[in-house]
């Protein structure tokens, strides 16, 4: 009787080992990846789209006559309107474009509308009694931009049973603030198609 129970238990051992092994295989695994690799997890706006747009716009703008002239134009970043049906952090796109241009050393950026509140608060804070009057930033010393950068991102989405096609168009413009002339403009198009099965 005892022997039979032991045999049954022993017979269960391989099953238990197999179950443990399967559970082990199903475990989550986290690894670092290449932040600049082509991402195709879904066809919504992704990191590759953001990077492609930022790189393409920056390289194109570097060839604009107002930038090539070498006068270090002062630019302010305005809104990139999201006209797509999905949520896109357009600020992340303009931040990337600004960072690349700034790093290239051919453009200077003036404080934009979004950062104006913090800028004014800091200037006002320095007017306080705790700051050295000679070293504190005085009011009325900020430099205004010569150009403003703005844009749009639009999308066309088409979907049938097993196919979803997304087309993005990003347009960026550089306007001369003094005379209202459009100094530079370019577009980047992206198409992504997902098929099931």
């Amino acid at each position: 009787m005892i022997d039979s129970s032991r045999t049954r238990r022993l017979a269960l051992l391989p099953l238990l080992a197999a179950a443990a092994l399967a559970a082990g295989c199903a475990q989550e695994q986290t690894r670092y990846g290449d932040a600049r690799s082509v991402e195709t997890v879904t066809n919504t706006f992704g990191s590759t789209d953001l990077q492609l747009i930022a790189e393409s716009m920056t390289r194109s703008m570097l060839q604009a006559p107002v930038i090539v002239s070498g006068n270090l134009p002062i630019v302010t970043v305005q809104e990139v309107r999201n006209k797509t049906s999905e949520y896109i952090d357009t600020r992340a796109i303009t931040d990337s474009i600004r960072a690349e241009l700034q790093k290239g050393g051919k453009v200077r950026f003036a404080v934009d509308a979004a950062a104006m509140k913090q800028q004014i608060e800091e200037v006002q804070r320095q007017q306080g009694e705790f700051f050295d009057k000679e070293q504190a930033t005085q009011k009325g010393k900020m430099v205004g931009a010569q150009y403003r950068m703005e844009g749009n991102i639009t999308s066309i989405v088409k979907q049938v049973k097993d196919i979803k096609d997304v087309y993005y168009k990003f347009n960026l413009q550089l306007w001369n603030i003094r005379n209202g002339l459009l100094e530079w403009s370019d577009e980047k198009e992206i198409r992504k198609t997902t098929t099931k099965g």
């Binding site: 290449d34 600049r36 082509v38 990077q51 790189e55 390289r59 570097l62 690349e100 790093k103 290239g104």
Partner: peptide
């Protein structure tokens, strides 16, 4: 740089252009 995806049709040629960032 970021990897840029590219589709090439069968029996085709394509010119890709680039400008240095600095």
């Amino acid at each position: 740089e970021t990897w840029k995806p590219l589709l090439m049709y069968e029996n085709s040629n394509l010119t890709i252009n680039a400008v240095s960032p600095t």
